[in-house]
């Protein structure tokens, strides 16, 4: 069962959609990794993305965890190369061209035009993500209770990130502790 060629194809494709950040590509990543290839569940993908927020460096290094989970260390390496190499080469090439196009009037049009589109795609990704992260599925009878606690944690996090200067990675760690207490099985 060699999944590595499919992993490479999926993550190379996803990387091209990360305009303005990784969240823009999240709905497509969910479709391909969960629904098309059945590599993991919605909740597991959310877990990997969330754990990735506590790691240093680019927040999409979580793709390495997905690669490892699906196909071992070689899977992680393959996914990392697939995710970073194509856009990296594109950035290198277009970056050089872009610098020389400083006085080309359409350059500003593209930058201004892409900004709200990228932001909209990010919001779409956030909504897709939230549908999984705030809804734990069919845990008979306890669904509503779980949803409310998760939503309260999310709202508290939102407020703390916007209102304080506490490092978000530490806050997420704290959310893990709160979760371990609040969501523990009786």
């Amino acid at each position: 069962m060699n999944q590595i060629p499919s992993l490479i194809a999926v993550f190379a494709y996803i990387s091209l959609l990360t305009v303005g950040g990784g969240m823009a590509a999240y709905p497509e990543m969910q479709t391909l990794t969960v629904h098309v290839h059945n590599w993991l569940t919605d909740a597991q993908l959310v877990h990997f993305y969330s754990i990735g927020q506590m790691a240093p460096g680019p927040n999409m290094n979580m793709v390495a965890a997905v690669g490892e989970f699906v196909a071992g260390p070689l899977g992680a390496l393959a996914v990392l190369l697939a995710f970073y190499a194509p856009t990296g080469l594109l950035t290198l090439g277009v970056g050089r061209l872009w610098t020389r196009l400083a006085n080309w009037p359409w350059r500003d049009s593209i930058q201004h035009g892409l900004a709200p589109v990228a932001l909209g795609l990010m919001l779409a990704g956030a909504i897709t993500f939230g549908k999984t992260s705030l809804d734990f599925g069919k845990v008979a009878g306890e669904l509503v209770q779980f949803n409310i606690i998760a939503a309260v944690i999310a709202a508290a996090m939102l407020a703390l990130v916007l209102r304080t200067k506490i490092n978000p990675a530490l806050l997420i760690l704290a959310c893990g502790i709160v979760g371990a207490i609040a969501f523990r099985s009786p």
Binding site: Y49, M54, A154, A156, P168, I172
Partner: peptide, 29 residues
Amino acid sequence: PLVDAALKGVAAGATGLIFATFFQLAGKT
């Protein structure tokens, strides 16, 4: 179970962080 419970908390926190990042960027651009 304990890891799963902690991950649910982490995921809820990440959701808040993602929306916070969105609002910060939206305010700027």
